[in-house]
Design a binder for these strands. Structure first.
Lengths: 256, 256
DNA sequence: AAGTTTGGTTGATTCACATCAATGAAAACA
DNA sequence: TGTTTTCATTGATGTGAATCAACCAAACTT
């Protein structure tokens, strides 16, 4: 094996480990030294890719592990007694899924994959154990849980106080800024979720979401061609939806 | 000092420490052995009582410590750019306040006391440090953060999908069960928050909350005499509001 | 390539809740 | 004790978004 081959092999290894992961700056490794990242890596499983409709876990299931989106996207939802689905969150790369279940030990919602998605899996017991050995990891885990609380507070504020236009604008702003954080375009992106899923998440009817998209398009704020969204006037959208939940809540990091 | 006096003194000491606190089974000490509770106790400050309107912290303030309600109650809210107040949560004894701020290091909302209230104060740095020494404490801290996520998810579901009647019923059920958990009556209690604060939290107008109370009263589900609430038919209320956010979310522990 | 299904858009109608307005009753204050 | 202020209730009216309904365009079938 010559030197070049060694380099390639080790690069490939890195790509498939926490160390080489491009999301490390958003995820659990934040603040960890290289040696500790290796320890974290040793408790992480990388599954074969999931496809649209695949479930990470189901409502009612026992909690044993958290998932982290590596690429693709995931929705969290629960089914009510009539079997209606209610979306409570969307997850993008670097975001942790399943945190709501630590408390009771049971998942209170289901997590379904929205498109071809890679995810890391971390047994929670192992994560807890390692966290008590590595203060930095404990710190980041607490921060990520807090991020979730923060974002959910923002959603409560949004759903409690804002109009359909404000909700949709806030949703688009949120996605845009999260894509940007991940090195993607803030101005053009594809939605992995349907209008119905957006509507469910925002507490609106599908028709209202559709009409709001059309109205924004008429005003020249964006161009929506099915799943493809081009944001033309991000300032104006921000004006409508960005500040309504106030500067206090940047719904930036996770859902909405 | 005779033996009786010694006993009384140590009892009083206990009352003012985590060890003797009646809320220990809901709060951070869960799962800790006596010796570890003492360590926890050593980083907790018990402030002189707060009064209605006093602030625990203000939106925008730097985060340094969490609060835990010992008696009384607290609301969390944020002010939008127009100065309107939006309630995002109510906290009862044993519930942790300020968790949303760990992530950014800044409080994204304000916390105001609703009635004469005692609260414990825990410097977060100390709590983190102690948590990495005591795995049980780390575990409970994670559980309490997760409880918050869980409850907020429930609120998102409630606000996104349910009618005014369902929201008010769910709110009352939630309070009722939380009072019961704390050894108080599930059937009769006093609201520490105004109708306007309830309305803000539930994303409704004051008038709608008031009318809904009246309608419930007409149906014989409850008797509301200003702040005093007597629940007459908890089953029926559960039927309206309890199951709507499904069995998945018991909004029981924290905020409505 | 025609038929079927699914997802999205648009229009017409309805309704639940917000808003506006007035009144009453309890605290708060002088 | 009267006055002011605040909070809760109830009624009348208006409206934003849900619902109902039709249609269109992709995407999937065979």
């Amino acid at each position: 094996m010559n030197k070049n081959q060694t380099t390639i092999v080790s690069l490939l290894k890195d790509r498939a480990s926490c160390k080489g992961c491009g999301l490390a700056s958003l995820c659990l490794p934040v603040g960890l030294v290289e040696n500790d990242i290796d320890k974290l890596n040793s408790i992480v499983t990388r599954n074969t890719p999931y496809h649209r409709g695949d479930m990470l876990y189901n409502q009612g299931e026992a909690f044993s592990r958290i998932f982290i989106v590596k690429s693709g996207s995931v929705k969290a939802y629960y089914e009510d007694k009539d079997g209606n689905e209610h979306v409570v969150g969307f997850f993008l790369p670097g975001e942790l899924i399943g945190l709501e279940a630590i408390h009771t030990g049971l998942h209170s919602c289901s997590a379904a994959v929205l498109e071809t998605t890679a995810a890391c899996e971390v047994p929670f017991e192992d994560l807890e154990k390692l966290s008590s050995e590595l203060p930095s990891l404990q710190h980041q885990l607490l921060r990520l849980l807090s991020r979730e609380v923060h974002n959910d507070c923002g959603m409560v504020a949004l759903l409690g106080n804002n109009s359909a236009e404000e909700r949709v604008a806030a949703f688009l702003i949120s996605l845009s800024s999260r894509f940007q954080q991940r090195g993607l375009s803030a101005h053009e992106f594809n939605l992995s979720m349907s209008r119905a899923e957006i509507a469910s998440f925002l507490g609106l009817a599908v028709e209202t979401v559709s009409r709001t998209f059309s109205r924004f398009q008429d005003k020249g704020l964006l161009e929506a061609e099915r799943k493809n969204i081009k944001i033309m006037d991000i300032e104006a959208l921000n004006e409508i939806g960005g500040l309504c939940a106030s500067t206090a809540f940047q719904l930036g990091q996770k859902h909405a």
